[in-house]
Design a protein around this nucleic acid. Sequence first.
DNA 1: GATGAATGAGGCTTCATTCAT
DNA 2: CATGAATGAAGCCTCATTCAT
Lengths: 202, 202, 202, 202
Amino acid sequence: MRRAERRAHLLECALTVFAKKGYHTATIADIIRDAGVARGTFYLYFESKRMVFDQLLGDLFAALASRVRRIDPSRGPTGVVAQMESNVDEVLDYLLENRPMLRLLLAEAVGLDPGFDQKLSEFYGRLLVLIESALEQGLEMKLLRKLDKQITSLCILGSIKEVLYQVAMGSQLPERPKIVDEILRYNVRALFVPEVADQLKM
Amino acid sequence: MRRAERRAHLLECALTVFAKKGYHTATIADIIRDAGVARGTFYLYFESKRMVFDQLLGDLFAALASRVRRIDPSRGPTGVVAQMESNVDEVLDYLLENRPMLRLLLAEAVGLDPGFDQKLSEFYGRLLVLIESALEQGLEMKLLRKLDKQITSLCILGSIKEVLYQVAMGSQLPERPKIVDEILRYNVRALFVPEVADQLKM
Amino acid sequence: MRRAERRAHLLECALTVFAKKGYHTATIADIIRDAGVARGTFYLYFESKRMVFDQLLGDLFAALASRVRRIDPSRGPTGVVAQMESNVDEVLDYLLENRPMLRLLLAEAVGLDPGFDQKLSEFYGRLLVLIESALEQGLEMKLLRKLDKQITSLCILGSIKEVLYQVAMGSQLPERPKIVDEILRYNVRALFVPEVADQLKM
Amino acid sequence: MRRAERRAHLLECALTVFAKKGYHTATIADIIRDAGVARGTFYLYFESKRMVFDQLLGDLFAALASRVRRIDPSRGPTGVVAQMESNVDEVLDYLLENRPMLRLLLAEAVGLDPGFDQKLSEFYGRLLVLIESALEQGLEMKLLRKLDKQITSLCILGSIKEVLYQVAMGSQLPERPKIVDEILRYNVRALFVPEVADQLKM
DNA sequence: GATGAATGAGGCTTCATTCAT
DNA sequence: CATGAATGAAGCCTCATTCAT
């Protein structure tokens, strides 16, 4: 097994373990048992338990960031909604294919220590900036009702996160297209002026 | 100091410590230092570290449950919104007065161990049932647009939780009435049929 | 066993172990086995392995410092030699009664890490200052031959340390009075002008 | 690079590393990094970390032994002192040109483990035998004052070692000839009967 | 020979819990 | 009841040594 492969394998096992037991409860012993390597091998690839988690979180952020596109309003209301849908779709696609990642993000990375909390904050902060600027554009185009951008972007983020959280926790939910559709409709209704929403058939 | 008082004092200190450092990072030493009692004394009042946290979480659930009323639809749309507002208001009232509790609920109690996760799930489950039944009634009264009750209730819960999460994390946000108002408007628009929403002036 | 007693006991055991196995080879396990206490108990009294050693070294330095008196030349050559003798005697007294300490000082504390090395340096530095100032006085009183104070004080220190080192290492040597006498004679001859040395019957 | 060369190179690097960090603190990683070879290569040339140190110490002993000549008393007092001077000079020459070796001998090889300690003891033991036999001869020739050979030889050894130790530790000291001169004068005065010492102009 | 990835024994330290006073 | 000293299981990490390529 080549260096890169083994590293990837270790990351994968670490992810599984963290997702299952949580950061604090998970031990290096768990990870190496899962990976079938010796203790020292782990430290050949990662400085510390903390650093693997960091890496996983970083990878996750990168994967998500690459799947979210800034919304371009020039194509009119229908285009905007399509782009929102695409963003939500892409993110869900990735997260639903990577349940352990989802769990990591929503359940295991919360409240670990100030360092992790800050990374999380920064990540969500960047997401919120994206959302706020989309709202800004929507407002200028008179597509959206009067609203407070800051609070509203939190509501949007939260409405998506909570659904994902339930998915991560293993709740029985409808099929993915249905989920995406429902989240979108909820937010379209919440944000757009009625005429536009109607016109979008939502 | 009587038994009950000392127990309450210990709980209070434990809450502070858990909120500040997180469950795993917090130590018994932290708690008893804060409380000014001896190590053994702690175990005179609580079985274990785990049990104090359990107790705190239980108390929090009880406090919140007592502040959320089932929505009675008989008083018409305006009444329903007023009741929604009252629920949101009460919960925020309590949580904003008890920031450590807020932090405990949203940041520290997540992903601790399967046991805690289940308690959280149950709590949110009960909340969701309340929301879903309110949605059910709203649908029957033709107040609400066509929607999937399960997903939608998650969106509602999430839109509120996320705002609270930011509050717990110390973000700079508008004043409380503004927050409540904005959350409500967001959800009213998201849920109600346009005519009703308009009529509610939201 | 009271706190102070147990601490002293642990220090004693640590000393024994360090003297026998050396700082690096000695383990906490060795110390607590010797002391008959649990692992955690050790850390109740000392921050770390390093800190116990520090403490021991500090105690040793204090004990020795309290046994070395600055030489007062006002009582003439005989008095000076008597004071030298008394100093050497006191130090040997202590060290021979505390063989493990001796070993610690001369064999185990050397080259451990920059921190320890500096402490040692400072200690010997203070000793050397004492010796140099004694030489200075002796020169002014015309009791001593022409000499370089710095190098000579090193020679004096070394002549004593080496004998002690052999004692620490367990070599078969003459009785203590004989040792002290011989070291003194060696140094009296080395330092004093012949007439004075003769007059001292050495 | 031929086998012998690479071995020598590794020894050199090991010496540097041991001198700088001490035996225990130094790691194989340090040595191979310094030498620019792979980990396995090290073990192609040496059985173990321990064995490299052994080798270095052995080489050092050999180098020193070859530079110390048994003192031949047949050439009279002046000759004896000249031979003493030559011995001290040679040894200092070598050690001052090989500071890392000096540090190894005086600071890093002390108190490592019983095995090393014994090697050191044996080395110094051989030195002491040389010194003692020189003293013996000096006594028979009536050049030296009455003295205990064993203790006195320790004093002599110590007076030299301590000066070297300070050199190894990097203290600011006079030039080498001055150092040698001072050590010699100190010992000549300490050992010889006054008339002889005077005659030697020391 | 040379390489460097893999190994795993072993050390240090923490901290929840117990228990004698 | 209260105390705080004692316990020891358990976790993290290091590093000398081995071995397949």
